[in-house]
């Protein structure tokens, strides 16, 4: 199946701004699904609110566009009810880690078989460029005209500590790497977190001296490095990319099946 068969062509061109990274993440996801050869009928994509969330409208899967921050909670209900379905939950950084932060850490902790893709553009795009929990210190935004003073989350460390069984980071610049990582994440039996740096030239870039999409993509290239590379020793500021955690841990739905078996056995006695 050609990967274009996975999109709802009638809604294109999509709503995202020129040069927005979210279209690249969409492409990466579809390429990964194509590579894995998953039947469209077996995929449920659940999103929240924001620029990122509009992604569900463009894919020809079972798609659920929900409310702000709660996509993982909706996805949990779907997955537990139909564990054989493949659940993919794309979220923005504000969606996943501000309003949805609690659901995110608990989904990690449960290790339920869902792939969370965090499209991190460090800004609230849909509402016009306010700072997010991923903006970091010293950035400009429409609600930070004098620059931000809040620390940002490290999504990888957060997901790892909260108990996700697969944790990775990549960028839209490294789209081939993104596709490979998404394939691994979707294949992982457990909760998978993939953080993808995605450019928002319109709001983040324009206010933070990265005026064009290519400036932003080059920023991703110049400021990241594969995990464990020598370059990092010389330049500790570089952000590592790659797969941080890929471990086999008990998965929620499988564990619940054991509970069902236990409950049925107890009542037979």
């Amino acid at each position: 199946m050609a990967f274009k068969d996975y999109i709802r062509e009638r809604f294109f061109p999509h709503i995202w701004c020129p040069g927005c990274g979210h279209g690249m993440v969409l492409k990466g996801m579809l390429k990964a699904v194509e590579k894995l050869g998953i039947d469209k009928n077996n995929i449920v994509m659940v999103s929240g609110i924001g620029c990122s969330a509009r992604i569900t409208g463009y894919v020809d899967f079972h798609t659920l566009h929900t409310i702000h921050g709660r996509a993982l909670a909706f996805a949990t209900g779907v997955k537990i009810s139909r564990p054989e379905l493949c659940l993919i939950v794309p979220m923005g950084d504000g969606d996943a880690l501000a309003i949805g932060g609690n659901h995110f850490i608990h989904a990690c902790r449960r290790n339920i078989d869902i792939t969370a893709v965090i499209m991190n553009n460090r800004i609230y795009g849909m509402t016009g460029g306010q700072y997010s929990p991923l903006s970091g210190i010293g950035k400009y935004a429409s609600t930070a005209p004098y620059s931000t003073i809040e620390n940002k989350f490290d999504i990888v460390k957060l997901a790892e500590t909260a108990g996700a069984s697969f944790v990775a980071r990549t960028t839209t610049y490294h789209i081939r790497e993104m596709i490979d990582i998404l394939c691994m994440a979707i294949s992982n039996k457990g909760f998978s977190v993939v953080e993808i740096f995605s450019q928002c030239p319109t709001y983040f870039g324009r206010k933070n001296e990265l005026k064009t999409p290519t400036d932003m993509l080059n920023y991703f290239k110049d400021n990241t490095t594969p995990i464990g590379s020598k370059v990092k020793e010389a330049n500790p500021e570089l952000i590592e990319r790659g797969v941080f955690i890929n471990s086999s841990m008990p998965e929620y739905c499988e564990e619940y099946d054991k509970i069902v078996a236990k409950a049925k056995k107890n009542t037979e006695v």
Partner: peptide, 14 residues
């Protein structure tokens, strides 16, 4: 051309 928004990414990275 209906879908192209002229962001220039393809031009730059070719």
């Amino acid at each position: 051309k209906d879908w192209c928004k002229g962001c220039g990414i393809c031009v730059f990275f070719c």
